[in-house]
Simulated assay, not measured.
Amino acid sequence: MKLLDTLHRWTGGLIGLVLALLGLSGTILLHKGLWIGVPGAGDAQRQDLATVAAATEKLMALPGDPQGIIYATPRLGLHQLRFGEDAGLYANQSGEVALRWGSQWERPELWLFDFHHHLFAGDSGEWVIGIAGLCGLFFVVSGIILWWRTRRTFQLRLWPKRMSRPAIVMHHRDLGIVVAPLLLLSIVTGTMMIFRPFALGVVAPFGPVAETAKALDLPKYKGGPLADRPDFAAMLAEARRRYPAAEFRILSLPRKPGDPISLRMRQQAEWLPNGRTTIWFDAATGKVLGAHDALAMPPGAQAFNKAYPLHSAKVGGLALQILMTMSGLSLTLLGSLALWSFWFRRPKPAKRPVKKTLLAST
Rank of each mutant, 00 (worst) to 15 (best):
residue 4 L to C: 09
residue 12 G to S: 04
residue 13 G to C: 05
residue 13 G to N: 06
residue 16 G to I: 06
residue 17 L to A: 08
residue 22 L to S: 12
residue 26 G to E: 07
residue 28 I to V: 15
residue 32 K to F: 03
residue 32 K to G: 13
residue 33 G to L: 03
residue 33 G to F: 04
residue 35 W to A: 04
residue 37 G to F: 07
residue 42 G to L: 03
residue 43 D to G: 12
residue 46 R to D: 12
residue 59 L to R: 03
residue 64 G to V: 05
residue 68 G to R: 12
residue 69 I to S: 04
residue 69 I to R: 13
residue 83 F to S: 10
residue 91 A to Q: 06
residue 92 N to D: 15
residue 97 V to S: 07
residue 101 W to I: 04
residue 101 W to N: 08
residue 102 G to T: 13
residue 103 S to A: 11
residue 105 W to G: 02
residue 110 L to Q: 09
residue 110 L to S: 08
residue 117 H to N: 13
residue 122 G to L: 07
residue 124 S to H: 15
residue 124 S to M: 14
residue 125 G to E: 01
residue 126 E to C: 11
residue 126 E to V: 11
residue 132 A to L: 05
residue 133 G to A: 09
residue 139 F to L: 15
residue 140 V to S: 05
residue 140 V to L: 08
residue 140 V to K: 04
residue 143 G to N: 04
residue 145 I to G: 05
residue 151 R to L: 06
residue 152 R to K: 13
residue 154 F to T: 11
residue 160 P to D: 06
residue 160 P to I: 06
residue 162 R to W: 06
residue 165 R to T: 05
residue 168 I to D: 03
residue 169 V to F: 13
residue 172 H to F: 12
residue 172 H to L: 08
residue 173 R to L: 09
residue 173 R to M: 10
residue 178 V to P: 11
residue 185 L to S: 04
residue 186 S to P: 10
residue 189 T to S: 12
residue 194 I to A: 04
residue 199 A to S: 13
residue 207 G to T: 04
residue 222 K to Y: 07
residue 223 G to I: 01
residue 223 G to Y: 00
residue 225 P to A: 09
residue 227 A to S: 14
residue 233 A to L: 02
residue 235 M to L: 09
residue 238 E to D: 12
residue 239 A to I: 08
residue 239 A to N: 04
residue 249 R to Q: 11
residue 250 I to K: 01
residue 252 S to F: 09
residue 254 P to M: 00
residue 256 K to P: 01
residue 262 S to W: 02
residue 263 L to N: 01
residue 265 M to S: 07
residue 266 R to D: 00
residue 268 Q to E: 14
residue 268 Q to C: 09
residue 273 P to Q: 13
residue 275 G to H: 00
residue 280 W to P: 02
residue 281 F to M: 06
residue 286 G to F: 02
residue 287 K to D: 11
residue 288 V to T: 14
residue 291 A to S: 14
residue 292 H to K: 06
residue 293 D to N: 06
residue 294 A to K: 01
residue 297 M to G: 00
residue 299 P to H: 02
residue 300 G to S: 08
residue 301 A to C: 02
residue 303 A to W: 00
residue 303 A to G: 05
residue 308 Y to M: 10
residue 308 Y to D: 01
residue 309 P to C: 10
residue 314 K to C: 01
residue 315 V to D: 10
residue 319 A to G: 13
residue 321 Q to K: 15
residue 324 M to V: 09
residue 327 S to V: 05
residue 329 L to S: 07
residue 330 S to R: 04
residue 332 T to R: 04
residue 333 L to S: 14
residue 334 L to K: 00
residue 336 S to F: 14
residue 336 S to A: 15
residue 345 R to V: 03
residue 346 R to G: 03
residue 348 K to A: 14
residue 349 P to N: 13
residue 349 P to G: 13
residue 349 P to K: 15
residue 351 K to E: 14
residue 351 K to D: 09
residue 353 P to E: 07
residue 359 L to S: 11
residue 361 S to M: 11
residue 361 S to V: 11
residue 362 T to N: 12
